[in-house]
């Protein structure tokens, strides 16, 4: 079985609409899977469900999340939390809000190693210094003592990447890790994540709305619409010939860097109507 295997996961807003509709996807050890879709398609929800950080208002209504052969949803809460903390990590979307403003950087990297994994403090600090150097931060010792407000957004994202890799997790969820960054920084951070992933052999679930990023970083991808997986394919096959009409339209809508003057192609309304009909048919069926 894959390292991460999400089976038929369904979730809804408590007393409200469905957010995820029997989502299944696999991430093999060391594999990078892209998770693409429009805003509200549920791609971030999947990442949050895997990491056990769904908002209180969201309720899982069915399915399984297998992490390293154990169904997380079947575990007691405390055990699930520790297992996720020991095996998985998050690279968050907005580096400006993801670091605690009143704690020094060093403690925010070493805390998991010391508290959850039981490392000695000195060893955890040595590890943090090593990783900060690995994400190309100059003068790591000074940065360890700094507070977040003393550092730039790009630096903070590098720190969050270092922190995510610190415990050598088997799986990292990257939730639109470049969206909040300056365009010039985006490319460097993307390259950094890809490089770190390759070096550490970590499985990566890469949530993004940018198919260009997927083509550069991922091996497989899942296309989501309305909380349903409409296509699951190898990246090479997908870009050669997407199978689902919605995926094809999404691909056609991606701006081309080679021809920036070409007008943008929206997803045709007929395609939207067809995929919405699929979602409606699902809700009308036995799974409602």
């Amino acid at each position: 079985m894959s390292f991460l295997s999400v089976r038929n996961l369904s979730a809804r807003v408590k007393g409200g609409p469905a957010l995820l509709r029997r989502v299944s996807l696999d991430v093999a050890a060391g594999e990078v899977r892209g998770l693409v879709g429009e805003s509200g398609a549920g791609k971030s929800m999947i990442g949050k469900a895997v990491l056990g950080i769904l908002p209180n208002a969201v309720q899982v209504t069915g399915g399984e999340i297998w992490l390293d052969g154990v169904d997380l949803l079947a575990l007691p809460v405390a055990e699930r939390r520790r297992r996720i903390g020991a095996m998985a990590a998050l690279i968050p979307q907005d580096p400006l809000t993801a670091l605690n403003p009143s704690r020094r950087i060093g403690g925010q990297i070493t805390d998991r190693l010391v508290d959850i994994l039981g490392w000695a403090r000195a060893r955890a600090e040595a590890r943090a210094l090593e990783l900060l150097a690995e994400v190309q931060i100059a003068d790591p010792a000074r940065v360890m003592r700094a507070y977040p407000h003393e550092l730039s957004g790009g630096m903070r994202q590098r720190i969050l990447i270092a922190s995510a890799f610190a415990a050598e997790p088997k799986l990292i969820v990257a939730d639109e890790p470049t969206t909040a960054l300056d365009v010039t920084v985006q490319k460097q951070i993307l390259k950094l994540i890809a490089g770190m992933q390759a070096k550490h052999g970590t499985a990566l679930l890469f949530v993004t709305h940018d198919l260009g990023v997927v083509s550069k970083v991922c091996q497989r991808l899942s296309v989501l619409y309305g909380g349903m997986v409409v296509e699951d394919a190898a990246v090479r096959d997908f870009f050669a010939a997407p199978r689902h009409a919605y995926s094809a339209a999404l691909l056609a809508a991606t701006p081309k860097y080679t021809d920036p003057m070409a007008s943008l192609t929206p997803v045709p309304e007929a395609v939207i109507a067809a995929v919405q009909a699929e979602v409606a048919a699902y809700d009308g069926g036995a799974h409602g």
Partner: peptide
Amino acid sequence: HLDYVTLARTKGYGETH
């Protein structure tokens, strides 16, 4: 609700901590 609190949860910390 802030991001750094959510991030701490993914590290394996419980509610009280």
